[in-house]
């Protein structure tokens, strides 16, 4: 079985994995809503900027984005401004996951907003609401329910993708277990990693199903 230090290491790895996942999804949703608003805005400039953002982050590997933010940004800023913009690795990784998931969530949220009947915006405007009042009080709350399944999906992807941080020197669940295997020559440690991932993905699945049901009262 596991020794006490091994359990501690697994707990630390799990905490790191959870931190990255939770920060990534929360910041990703906030930034994703803003990007989605940009994508559907009538302003050419906002539209263009957000399009490029989504294009760049969805069109390149997440691992590359991690390397760029963790390693390349300090070097670039050193060249440009004479000092390196260097975050702690964990913070830099959290930024990378947030920026990346925001791009995917933006497209999910945009599709959700656009799936709401146009009559809803018109009725809101006819009642004197501004565009943003209508968006945040009428349109987005209705889009919630349709967003729940794809956002749950994105959350699960994000959770699994956090294992990439092994390559920038962080000890998440997976790296912790593979190190135990390397040290002992025994492969069963991977089973602990699998159990931990499945435990969290199951929770996500159950919670998101519940929430989706809860929102179905009005149709």
């Amino acid at each position: 079985m596991l020794t006490i230090p091994q359990v501690m290491a697994l707990v630390d790895g799990t905490i790191l994995t959870m931190q990255l996942t939770l920060i990534g999804i929360t910041a990703g949703i906030v930034l994703g809503v803003l990007l989605a608003l940009g994508r559907i805005s009538k302003s050419r400039i906002l539209n263009g900027i957000t399009w490029v953002y989504v294009w760049a982050f969805r069109g390149t590997p997440l691992l590359m984005q991690l390397f760029i933010i963790v390693y390349a940004v300090p070097l670039f800023t050193l060249d440009l401004f004479g000092f390196p913009l260097r975050l702690p690795i964990l913070a830099a990784a959290a930024v990378a996951y947030s920026l990346n998931s925001a791009a995917y969530l933006a497209e999910i949220i945009r599709a959700g907003i656009q799936s709401i009947d146009k009559g809803q915006m018109e009725a809101s405007k006819a009642l004197g609401m501004s565009y943003y009042q209508a968006m945040f009080k009428i349109i987005i709350p209705q889009a919630y329910r349709r967003l729940i399944p794809p956002v749950g999906n994105e959350l699960i992807m994000l959770l699994k993708d956090t294992s990439l941080v092994a390559s920038i020197g962080l000890f998440d669940v997976l790296r912790t277990t593979s190190q135990m295997t390397n040290a002992t020559g025994k492969a069963f440690y991977y089973i602990y990693a699998a159990i931990i991932y499945l435990f969290f993905t199951t929770i996500i699945q159950v919670v998101f199903d519940k929430v989706e049901k809860k929102y179905s009262i009005y149709d």
Binding site: D117, G119, Q120, E122, A123, A126, I138, P141, Q142, Y218, D219
Partner: peptide, 14 residues
């Protein structure tokens, strides 16, 4: 000052 009623009601379902 203008109120509007639509053919398809457009009530807010949520």
């Amino acid at each position: 000052e203008l109120g509007m009623v639509f053919q398809r009601f457009n009530l807010f379902p949520h």
